[in-house]
Design a protein around this nucleic acid. Structure first.
Lengths: 218, 218
DNA sequence: GTCGACCAGATTGTCAACAATCTTGTCGCG
DNA sequence: CGCGACAAGATTGTTGACAATCTGGTCGAC
């Protein structure tokens, strides 16, 4: 009988996941050419599968495709990263406001606990843990907002600037700056203050934008 | 500036444009199944081209694709339309603020003139002209903002709710409500008042959301 | 009579080969 | 010596056929 090889050898999914992982972890250099035939051979799938995967990644904004000229890893300049973060600013503000209007007591407790873990991570000088908690906070806020549309947009935007976010997280002193901003967001949400939550979220992202622009000069 | 070379008869582009036009004009009913083979035969292109076009349209949020189960015209419920418009609210607010910070005198004059045309259209009871000027206004604001990222997101969102926007434009008395809101946006931008422009844009979109929710009950 | 397995039809996912297009290096001419 | 035309190579876009999967209906068992 047909021994299901590799279980569900869906070529497109294989290629898509492998490529996306390589893009997000930075294994593929920005601007690098992505030749369909090479990728097909490298991942042991057909060219059509690679092609479909590249189309999906293009839709996510991770890859740039030019007709008859191939696909490249999309290069996000600092200026674009700033523009993206400006969009994140207003969208996360919306999510924060909605979250503040919808949280129940249990969710509020989770947020408060996460705030404590953020403080501990900074106190312990553990940037990796801080970064992880940071992402968890943003994810939680989006989830609590119930705004699937905004969440989808934010996921896309975040994927595009993951490299810049990573660089930013490594900057010395950055956690000390962002920690009170994060705590302010948590505070406003827990207190069911939509306007305050939106303002706090925007203040935080504005701070991120300023840091990004600094890194452009550095 | 080579003009768009349409002599290539690129099958994908043919199918993509035809399908997008059919979707935006409403020739294809929401929820309708889109069978690749049928579309390929109907437009005289290969199935692979239709497939590529469907992927692009899925990325734009106009089509819904389920693995091994085909593509359908995406149905946007009123609830989703509201969520989308909430995102539009904050994003257009961002664009309006940026536009107010960047307009030059010439662009301000164009905006002012467009405001007059909007008034005339309402006075003449011409909803079609008003709707056209309306779209032009939103487009201009996005262009003047210089925010390509936000513009791209807004284009996607608008395409998804074109049907709801159309229904809204037909409501009697709707222009009388939105006209002063539009004029307020123009006013704030012309006066280089970013905060006022953002607030005016958000007020306008909040009004649209309210109208959408009313139409849900009606 | 109802429930579950099975089978035929339809549809999407995948594959390898062909055609169209672009890029690059070379050659000839001014 | 510089510049434009040309051809070879490489890469993408397209085509048609095949395999995998899902849907709906029918048959048989309990």
């Amino acid at each position: 009988m047909s021994v299901a090889p590799q279980e569900g050898a869906a070529g497109t999914r294989t290629a898509l996941e492998a490529l996306r992982a390589a893009l997000l972890t930075g294994d593929l250099a920005p601007g690098q050419r992505l030749v369909e035939a090479d990728l097909a051979a490298a991942h042991g799938v057909s060219r059509a599968s690679v092609r479909a995967a590249l189309m999906d990644l293009t839709a996510e904004g991770l890859v740039e495709r030019i007709p008859h000229r191939g696909a490249r890893v999309r290069v996000v300049t600092v200026e674009e990263a700033v523009a993206i973060t400006e969009c994140r600013m207003v969208l996360e503000g919306l999510c924060a406001a909605k979250a503040a209007a919808r949280v129940d007591d249990e969710q509020a407790a989770v947020l408060t606990a996460l705030g404590h873990r953020l403080q501990e991570a900074v106190a312990a000088g553990d940037p990796v843990a801080y970064s992880a908690h940071n992402r968890e906070l943003h994810r939680l806020l989006r989830e609590m907002s119930g705004q699937e549309v905004a969440t989808g947009l934010l996921d896309r935007l975040n994927a595009q600037i993951v490299r810049h976010q990573f660089r930013l997280a490594l900057r010395a002193g950055r956690p000390q700056v962002s920690l009170p901003e994060h705590l302010a967001i948590i505070d406003a949400v827990v207190q069911r203050d939509p306007q305050g939550a939106e303002q706090a979220a925007r203040t935080h992202l504005a701070s991120v934008i300023a840091a990004l622009q600094e890194s452009a000069d550095g």
